[in-house]
């Protein structure tokens, strides 16, 4: 989960200048995959899952919302690969379509939280007056456990995939901002940034040329962990009834619907659970591999 990595990031923040990525020679994708097999394995699983989500209608699925009360609670069979739920809906189809929600939420939150965090972190790192105010506010937000913050936000809005994305993004922003800010602060101490300032380079130019490119590596790693965390949070929100609306099949929703009957029909809960875990595992594998690849010194430490 991202929290962990974020939190470790916080824990090791004082040593950050030390672990900043050294200037890297460009290496090809093939070399990256060869040296870091976890990226290959995780990436391959992810590609398959994304494909599955996109071509869901072609994968022998039926309408995931089609009710068939006469055929409810079937065990897994040739007709119902993963069985059917208490409304007679085909669980296999629901699980395959459910991948869409998880992937969309994970990727969107990673993108939005990274962009917002980058923006806020850059401002905090460059504008001294804003820094104190922004960081005190972020400290406050960070002392609300992220899932609880997302729950509070969902309680105020209508259940929809868009609102789930918004709520989880807001819950993730403080940690990203903090990471970007600490990277910016340590980069500002670098000699080449000093040199750029003395030679009269304007601030926007410095940010664009010298700061932004150097935040890319830690941000990429961070984004994968945010993606993993967002998928888990979405599932948790849906599981407790505060996430994706019940009309849209998502892994959390399927598990929530199976909760009442799970002692009799554990399959309803276990199939979406397995897919969710596999997806998060794949994202984490990519994240760990990228972290090791982009930051060799850090890799040795962990």
């Amino acid at each position: 989960m991202t929290d962990i990595i974020n939190h470790e990031g916080v824990a090791i923040a004082p040593q950050l200048p030390d672990i900043l990525p050294p200037v890297k020679r460009r290496t090809g994708l093939a070399a990256l995959l060869r040296h870091h097999p976890t990226v290959l394995v995780g990436g391959a699983i992810l590609v398959l899952l994304v494909l599955m989500a996109i071509i869901a209608p072609l994968l022998f699925t039926v309408d995931p919302t089609a009710l068939a009360p006469a055929r409810r609670l079937r065990s897994p069979s040739a007709e119902y690969w993963f069985g059917s739920d208490m409304l007679g809906r085909d669980i296999y189809s629901r699980v395959v379509y459910g991948a869409r929600v998880s992937l969309v939420v994970g990727i969107s939150v990673a993108a939005f939280a990274s962009l917002a965090g980058l923006f806020i972190g850059l401002i905090a790192g460059f504008v001294r007056i804003a820094d104190g105010v922004i960081m005190r506010f972020m400290d406050g937000l960070m002392s609300i456990p992220p899932i609880l913050l997302a729950i509070a936000l969902m309680a105020l809005t209508r259940a929809s995939v868009g609102n789930v994305i918004l709520a989880i993004t807001i819950a993730e922003i403080p940690r990203v901002s903090r990471l970007v800010r600490s990277v910016v602060l340590s980069l500002r101490e670098q000699a080449y940034v000093d040199a750029a300032i003395t030679s009269g380079t304007r601030t926007p130019q410095i940010i664009l040329r010298h700061i932004l490119p150097n935040t890319l590596a830690p941000m990429t790693v961070q984004a994968t962990y945010i993606c993993a965390s967002a998928m888990i949070t979405e599932a948790i929100l849906s599981f407790i009834g505060a996430g994706t609306p019940p009309t849209i099949p998502s892994w959390g929703n399927i598990m929530a619907e199976g909760r009442a009957l799970w002692q009799v029909k554990p399959a309803i809960v276990f199939f979406p659970a397995a897919f969710l875990s596999l997806t998060v595992l794949a994202v984490n594998l990519v994240g760990d591999g990228l972290r090791d690849a982009l930051d060799p010194r850090f890799a040795k430490r962990l």
């Binding site: 993993a228 659970a273 595992l281």
Partner: peptide, 21 residues
């Protein structure tokens, strides 16, 4: 890595299935 990837309710159901059911 496994521990970070399997959500808490999944672990809960698996444990309950094995040790309780």
């Amino acid at each position: 890595v496994f521990g970070f990837s399997v959500p808490v309710f999944v672990v809960g159901y698996v444990l309950a299935y094995i040790f309780a059911l």
